[in-house]
Design a binder for these strands. Structure first.
Length: 877
RNA sequence: GCGGGCGUGGCGGAACUGGUAGACGCGCUGGACUCAAAAUCCAGUUCUGGUGACACAGAGUGUCGGUUCGACUCCGACCGCCCGCACCA
């Protein structure tokens, strides 16, 4: 056995077939064992499985296999996030129907995934574009509608006037449509919304309970929800300057304390008052139109140079009728936050300061930082947004920021303006309602009918699903559902008169907001969920996916659970008990002199003076080795999982992707690295063979009564490794697990090398056999095929993946004698070997007697000796 | 612009809640095996000084400063890179 090479390709397909035939990974939902639901974010069927996907799924698979070995009922499913824009783009480019393109991709990608040996319950596979899936989504939408969780209101979209279509932000490049090149306009459309803002407070508070989520994601979600406590303030307009009918301007501010630092007011370009002012001012109208051509992306709007236009309107300061402020329209004020209007206090807000500096309006500091002289405190180009004492603020002077906020709120609440208080406290959220309308074909149809007589009428249950028509073409601009000759024309379910189907489809984030619940019983035709199954499996114990989903997908899913709970489809609010965000797989880039990107498998490396050099294998043309970057088709720095599996096997790929880099960081794919892992696979195979050749302990004798030092050393290493592997798998520190397993392999190799004869004593044979079995089971979650092959070679009739996890003997992990590092003034000078239970007095005496310590002390007395039990000793001299 | 994160040898990284910085691996150097190469095995490998070789000394976790007996870890400022910003998924 030891002389043969391990044939990964043969072994992998063999064991995959065995698992499949035995139904090893089908989940059970009825046992008395504890459940564990591990899930990786499902892929979009883009065409090919990417190596980054396989890293993600391997992480989940390690957890799934480990938890199974620990005695859990494990649910580990897979499916497809199958609706979306790329299918329609493909339809336009290649004249292939989105469904055909999507299902072909799914078939390819499923086959690719199966090569990886993932322990997935494929009987639960689902695709969101399947009417059997979206039927239930439509039903829940209607349930939400009845429950008051759905709204219809206006919102802005990017409109491409040439393609006659709505553009995603990513399709707007420098204010132009990516395909047509036409200047993008903003348009108001009536759209469907889910009322996520109703849950803002609960979504915020519940973040505290998500203990197994990364702190950074929790912070991002808190900031996204963006709760703030502030004041609505109504500014009267100077009548002579106001457009007809306009009497006041209401702003929302979190800094009412800075009212005496106000220098201007600013309106969002689509604020009603801006529109009113523009009616009499063509230049202003042109300015507003210019702002709209930027598109709807907040990132673009806020990074654009700050520009404003004076409307000529003047607002009256709430505390001084003689003080008026100019009202601008400004490109950085957002209509959908607060009231769409602000007062600008340049000294204490950077955006406002940039604005006044551009328009020469000046600033008045009103908050003075502690310890700074108010008389000399000036603001030039950095705003001060910290705490301090109020200055230049009349009756607020001398107060703290908090006191001033309170005082302003109190005064304005009790000031009457046109029969209502001038100020009102308000809690505001940055979070906006979730617009789910998409003017696209390849998505879940929104199941309502518009009737002129009855208004919006839900499609009756019996008529669900509303299925997408198949006979559509993409050769003309606009939404194919709108163009379809018959699809949208229906009878009103209520009055029977002529009516029109809703042609908007749902945002694909809706599809991905509940798929994880559907997995718990994916074949229930009658309802979205089966409560018993959902209650058993939910929540997901460990969810794994990319950090790019830290906000939207996860927040929408959290909201959707609440909505499903209110409508009786589930019994819980939080879908994901544990969350892990994994890093990407990245690769070097290669370019020729003329800038052409070269794929890794077309590159050959040369050793030579001046470091690494590369050429194009086929032509010998020299290549510039570029930076390591995210794998992308455009830069051609991708590697295909299939190629890796064919060359080295899935186990090698799995091990490599989890070794070296911590799982939440990027891992750099290198050919050399993969080759070295392949060598390690072979080494493990040989090592297990060598251990096997030493033979089992004689007879069926149990645990020997005593172990010689070499046997004890082997056992300590084995049991110590079990503990460390457990700890680090639980923490998902797979790279550390791998290091510990390699260490164990190194110890065992050395122990075999130290054998002096073929006659190995019984206690050592026992230790080696135990080591071989344990080693295989420890790496089995990572390299499951090799593990089965080794497990069988060791003479086991069972499957490694069905064998319980090895039990560590804790007594073997604790040493009686320990080594304490000894520092003098914080610098390590020696080691103290001492009894584990030695008391401080004994340690202090022993430490001072150490030769290196005495040398470092140079005859000085010890001022203090700090003994940290079982960790370290530090002498202060 | 706003929000979040990351930064440790030539390289990827390890270091539990502040306690031996550099585990494990890649690469490199030397050696064994071989006609030779590959593979494999053994040894070494943070930097600087020092030594024939040891010993030993000093510096060191992006930069600068602080807290502490002790800082990769905590605090403040700065630099660089990455992610998200609501119609990509």
């Amino acid at each position: 056995m030891a002389s043969e090479r391990y044939n990964a390709r043969e072994a992998e397909s063999k064991w995959q077939q065995v698992w499949e035939e035995r139904g090893t990974f089908l989940s059970r939902t009825d046992s008395a064992r504890p459940k564990y639901y591990v899930l990786e974010m499902f892929p979009y069927p883009s065409g090919r499985i990417h190596i980054g996907h396989t890293r993600n799924y391997t992480m989940g698979d390690v957890v799934a296999r480990y938890k199974r070995a620990r005695g859990f009922d494990v649910l580990h499913p897979m499916g497809w996030d199958a609706f979306g824009l790329p299918a329609e783009n493909a339809a336009m480019q290649n004249r292939v129907h989105p469904a055909q393109w999507t299902y072909a991709n799914i078939a390819t990608m499923r086959a690719q995934l199966k090569l990886m040996g993932l322990s997935i319950d494929w009987s639960r596979e689902l695709a969101t574009c399947d009417p059997a899936y979206y039927k239930h989504q439509q039903r829940m939408f209607l349930d939400f509608l009845v429950a008051g969780l759905v709204d219809r209101k206006q919102s802005k979209v990017n409109w491409d006037p040439v393609d006659q279509t709505v553009l995603a932000n990513e399709q707007v490049i420098d204010g132009r449509g990516w395909r047509s090149g036409a200047v993008v306009e903003q348009r108001e459309l009536t759209q469907w919304f889910l009322r996520i803002t109703d849950e803002a407070q609960d979504l915020l508070e519940a973040i505290d309970g998500l203990e197994r989520w990364p702190e950074k994601v929790r912070l991002m979600q808190r900031n996204w929800i963006g709760r703030s406590e502030g004041l609505l303030v109504r500014f009267p307009l100077a009548p002579a300057t106001a457009p007809p009918g306009a009497r006041e301007l209401e702003v929302y501010t979190t800094r009412p304390d800075t009212l005496f630092g106000a220098k201007f007011m600013a309106l969002a370009p689509d604020h009603p008052l801006a529109a009113a002012a523009a009616r009499a001012n063509p230049d202003l109208a042109e300015f507003i139109a210019g702002c709209r051509r930027v598109g709807t992306s907040v990132a673009v709007i806020e990074t654009a140079e700050k520009r404003g236009f004076d409307t000529g309107i003047r607002a009256v300061h709430p505390f001084d009728p003689t003080w008026t402020l100019p009202v601008y329209v400004a490109n950085f004020v957002l209509m959908n936050y607060g009231t769409g209007a602000i007062f600008g206090c340049p000294a204490h807000d950077q955006r406002d300061l940039d604005f006044v500096n551009a328009y020469g309006l000046g600033n008045i500091p009103v908050v003075c930082p502690p310890g700074v002289d108010p008389a000399s405190f000036r603001i030039t180009d950095v705003a001060y947004d910290g705490d301090g004492g109020m200055i230049n603020s009349r009756f607020l002077d001398g107060m703290t920021v908090a006191q001033a906020k309170e005082e302003v709120a109190r005064r304005l609440e009790s000031t009457d303006l046109d029969g209502r208080p001038q100020g009102r406290r308000q809690i505001n959220y940055k979070l906006r309602d979730w617009g789910i309308s998409r003017q696209r074909y390849w998505g879940c149809p929104i199941p309502v009918v518009h009737c002129e007589a009855c208004g919006v009428v839900p499609v009756p249950d019996a008529d669900l699903p509303v299925v997408l028509p198949e006979d559509v073409t993409f050769d003309r601009p606009g939404n194919p559902l709108d163009w379809h000759p018959t699809w949208k024309h229906v009878r009103c379910p209520s009055c029977g008169g002529p009516a029109r189907r809703e042609t908007d489809t749902m945002d694909t984030f809706v599809d991905s907001s509940w798929y994880f619940v559907r997995y718990t019983d994916p074949h229930n035709e009658a309802a979205p969920t089966t409560r018993a199954a959902a209650d058993y499996w939910m929540p997901v114990d460990q969810y794994i996916g990319g950090i790019e989903h830290a906000i939207l997908h996860l927040l929408y899913s959290r909201f959707f659970m609440r909505a499903m709970r209110e409508t009786g489809h589930v019994g819980l609010k939080e879908p994901f008990a544990g969350l892990f965000t994994q890093g990407m797989v990245v690769h070097e880039t290669y370019r020729t002199r003329d800038g052409a990107w070269i794929a890794p498998d077309e590159v050959k490396f040369l050793d030579g003076a001046g470091g690494r050099q590369a050429i194009v294998t086929a032509t010998g043309e020299p290549i510039e080795i570029g930076p390591v970057e995210k794998m992308s088709k455009s830069k051609r720095n991708t590697v295909s999982p299939d190629d890796i599996v064919v060359s080295y096997g899935a186990d090698t790929a799995r091990w490599f992707m989890l070794s070296d880099s911590p799982p939440d960081r990027d891992v750099i794919w290198t050919e050399e690295g993969v080759q070295r892992v392949f060598a390690f696979v072979q080494r493990l195979w040989r090592l297990v063979g060598e251990l096997n050749a030493i033979g089992p302990p004689p007879g069926e004798a149990g645990l020997p009564n005593a172990f010689s030092p070499p046997a004890l050393a082997v056992r300590k290493a084995v049991h110590g490794t079990i503990v460390k592997v457990e700890e680090n798998i639980e923490r998902l520190h797979f790279n550390v697990v791998i290091a510990r397993i390699r260490e164990l392999a190194n110890v065992l190799s050395a122990a075999i090398g130290a054998l002096e004869s073929d006659e190995v004593p019984a206690d050592l044979r026992f230790a080696f056999r135990e080591a071989a079995d344990t080693l295989v089971l420890l790496y089995a979650p990572f390299m499951p095929h090799l593990a089965e092959e080794c497990w069988a070679a060791l003479g086991h009739a069972s499957l490694a993946c069905e064998t319980p996890w090895p039990q560590a003997d804790r007594a073997l992990v604790v040493d009686d004698v320990i080594t304490l590092p000894v520092q003098v003034n914080g610098r390590k000078r020696g080691d103290l070997v001492i009894d584990r239970n030695a008391d401080n007095a004994a340690i202090e005496a022993a430490v001072l007697a150490l030769e290196p310590v005495r040398r470092a002390m140079e005859g000085r007395p010890a001022k203090r000796i700090i003994v940290v039990p079982r960790r370290i000793v530090n002498i202060v001299a």
